[in-house]
Design a protein around this nucleic acid. Structure first.
Length: 625
RNA sequence: GCGGGCGUAGCUCAAUUGGAUAGAGCACCUGACUACGGAUCAGGAGGUUAGGGGUUCGACUCCCUUCGCCCGUGCCA
């Protein structure tokens, strides 16, 4: 069942109903046809248009133009639009509609409430958004930027549309890699080379990398050396390496067993690693104004105790089968995704994989939390993996909602990579990945510089706050404003520009409107405008009014496609339309009080929509800059 | 090999899910206003939407095909 956002005050919806009625009257055989109402791209054509006639033509066996004429002849829009005649039919059969001025005013009046025309979704859904996946003992880098930024924006959009959201940070806090670090840390701490009490994430990151390499056994190299009869010295060196790595590897496995058994000392170190990692993670989220807290964490460790029973369940019910010693779920059937590669859920050695945990997570999210929709804000490269996990959950029945008995809608909100200005993956000059906290700090520093240049008078404390807002706006908007599935090119200069489709520009547009009200107060203009009737007579006023009314549809389109850039584009267009209005329609200079007040109301609405839209994107609003 | 994604102006990106003359910003050129925040507005130039074919009244969008780049592809996560 498609969700509904019925709103009798939205001209698009009113026109859709009228056109639908006219179509049903003239072409009963096509009564279900979509009226296809959309705002006109150019004002010369009209305010709104219906594109239904062309599509209807072949269904009813008439020429498109005749269909349009029939619709125009039967429609009743006298109360909302200017009379429709054949003169309103253009091209192959577009029907152009011009709103009656009083209808526009009425729509504006109805729009001017706290909800800004956004009616709650019906039915509202319970949605889980998977928007982060940090790993213990690993420093966060640019690769961790997009997931929370996009996921949080999607969560906010859906919340604004009336849904209930649960965010999930799927923390990589379990398994052999973690055990390797812990084994190394315990050894290093015992030798007095590190202090676990004062350890930093950078140190943990280093330990992680060293643990990885010391457990890396070069079996292939040894094999090759033997086969090609290399010198005894070379073979001996390789044997030594392999022996050392094997020792480290076995120690890690022992550590994993102790960890699973909740051995106090081992678990204590694990907890320490978790605390250090998660503190940085949550700090980054706070800096980015991403709404993720400790309560949203669901580590792999929390699924670990459930895996064995779940896998048994899959085996006994015949969902999974043994293949080459491993346990797999086959997904060739189209209802499971029609995927050739099976989903591996248990290795030959009995170990579980990340797919196992991910299937388990779906089970918990649907069966325990009651998720009706699960959205994964994850790198596009994980697409196959996610489709496998979705398919396996469906096959296992875990994705079937316990109350509605409908399968949860599972979607991959895939995104591309962050590239440098050379078009290659974003790295430092020395070729290392950029620490996320460094990236954020540099953004703030550059934003502070830009703010200082633009407005040197700001007091230091406020300047820092504003710089952070501008920095967050720049960083997140750059990430959100382009089609998420594509890679995007990271550029401090471009994202921090005050011109063009950028976060700082939208903040500027907002503070510019706010300053009008400060100026009005200075001039002793009271708040009479709040009760003055709306008006939109000048062309620029009318265009602004029409643009404002498009806000709910822009939000809905964003929520439907899970594409925040749609909202960004709308806000940017709104800012542009407002600029034109601001240029052409003096607000405080106009002699007439009624005009001044109705224009103040338009300014007020524009500010409200901009602020609301920015907050939905996770960008903080400010009063001045 | 197979599967997926991407390819739009010199550069960075859009295009309301198949609709009217493919739009913005930057850069370039020309104008406006002693400017309710000039971090502005108006205008110009810039395109065979990678190439070819097809479906359609209509294709950047859907189908086929070729080229180029990226990614994934059974025992890492």
């Amino acid at each position: 069942m498609p969700e509904s956002h019925a709103n009798v005050d939205d001209p698009v919806q009113v026109l859709a109903a009228r056109f639908a009625a006219a179509i049903a009257k003239v072409f009963p055989q096509a009564a279900d046809a979509d009226p296809l109402i959309t705002p006109c791209k150019t004002p010369e054509h009209g305010d709104f248009q219906s594109n239904a006639a062309m599509g209807l033509a072949k269904r009813v066996g008439k020429k498109p133009r005749e269909v349009a004429e029939a619709i125009v002849g039967a429609i009743d829009v006298a109360d909302i639009a200017e009379p429709l005649t054949v003169a309103n039919i253009a091209g192959p059969g577009f029907i152009n509609v011009r709103l009656r001025p009083d209808a526009l005013i009425a729509a504006l009046q109805a729009f001017d409430t706290a909800s800004l025309g956004v009616t709650p979704a019906s039915p509202a859904q319970f949605v889980v958004v998977d928007l982060m996946g940090v790993n213990l003992a690993k420093q966060m880098h640019v690769g961790h930027l997009r997931s929370p930024v996009i996921g949080d924006a999607i969560a906010r959009v859906l919340t604004r549309l009336g849904h209930t959201i649960k965010r999930q940070n799927h923390v990589g806090d379990w398994g052999l890699p973690i055990a390797m670090v812990i084994a190394r840390l315990m050894r290093e701490a015992a030798a007095g080379r590190i202090s676990l009490d004062h350890i930093t994430l950078d140190q943990l990151d280093e330990a992680y990398r060293k643990a990885q390499s010391e457990c890396q056994r070069d079996m292939a190299g040894l094999e090759a050396a033997r086969r090609f009869g290399m010198g005894p010295k070379a073979i001996a060196e390789l044997e030594e390496q392999v022996a050392g790595a094997t020792e480290a590897f076995l120690a890690a496995r022992q550590t994993l067993i102790k960890l699973q058994a909740m051995d106090p000392e081992t678990h204590g170190v694990w907890k320490r690693v978790q605390d250090v990692t998660m503190k940085v993670c949550i700090d980054v989220c706070r800096q980015l104004r991403v709404n993720v807290t400790d309560a949203d964490s669901a580590g792999e460790s929390s699924y670990a105790p459930e895996l064995a029973a779940m896998v048994d369940d899959l085996v006994t019910r015949g969902v999974a089968e043994v293949s080459d010693g491993a346990l797999v779920v086959r997904l060739e059937d189209p209802q499971y995704g029609g995927i050739k590669e099976p989903c591996l859920i248990r290795k030959t050695d009995g170990g579980y994989l990340y797919a196992t945990t991910d299937v388990c997570a779906i089970r918990r999210r649907v069966q325990k939390f009651g998720a009706e929709r699960i959205i994964y804000s994850i790198d596009a490269r994980q697409n196959l993996h996610l489709r496998q996990v979705f398919g396996a959950s469906i096959k296992a029945g875990y994705a079937i909602h316990p109350r509605t008995h409908a399968p949860a809608r599972m979607e991959h909100a895939a995104f591309g990579s962050v590239m440098g200005e050379d078009g290659k993956p974003f790295k430092t000059r020395s070729g290392e990945s950029v620490k996320l906290s460094d990236l954020i700090e540099e953004t703030f520093t550059r934003a502070a510089e830009a703010v200082r240049k633009g407005n040197p008078e700001l007091p230091a404390g406020e300047a820092r706050e504003i710089a952070e807002a501008v920095g967050v706006a720049a960083l997140k908007y750059a990430d959100l404003s382009t089609d998420r599935v594509k890679d995007y090119i990271f550029s401090f200069d471009r994202m921090l520009a005050f011109e063009g489709n950028t976060g700082p520009y939208l903040l500027y547009a907002l503070v510019r409107i706010k300053s009008i009200f400060r100026k009005a107060a200075e001039r002793g203009v009271g708040e009479t405008w709040k009760t003055t009737p709306h008006a939109a007579t000048a062309p620029a006023e009318k265009q602004l009014a029409l643009a404002l009314l498009r806000y709910p549809a822009a939000l809905r389109a964003t929520g439907e496609a899970l594409e925040p850039h749609r909202l960004c584009t709308y806000l940017y267009e709104l800012a542009g339309v407002f600029s034109t209005f601001f240029e052409q329609c003096p607000v405080l200079k106009d002699g007439h009080e009624a005009t001044r007040d109705s224009r103040l109301r338009l300014c007020d609405l524009a500010a409200k929509v901009l602020a609301d839209g920015l907050s939905v994107l996770g960008i903080p609003a400010i009063e001045r800059m």
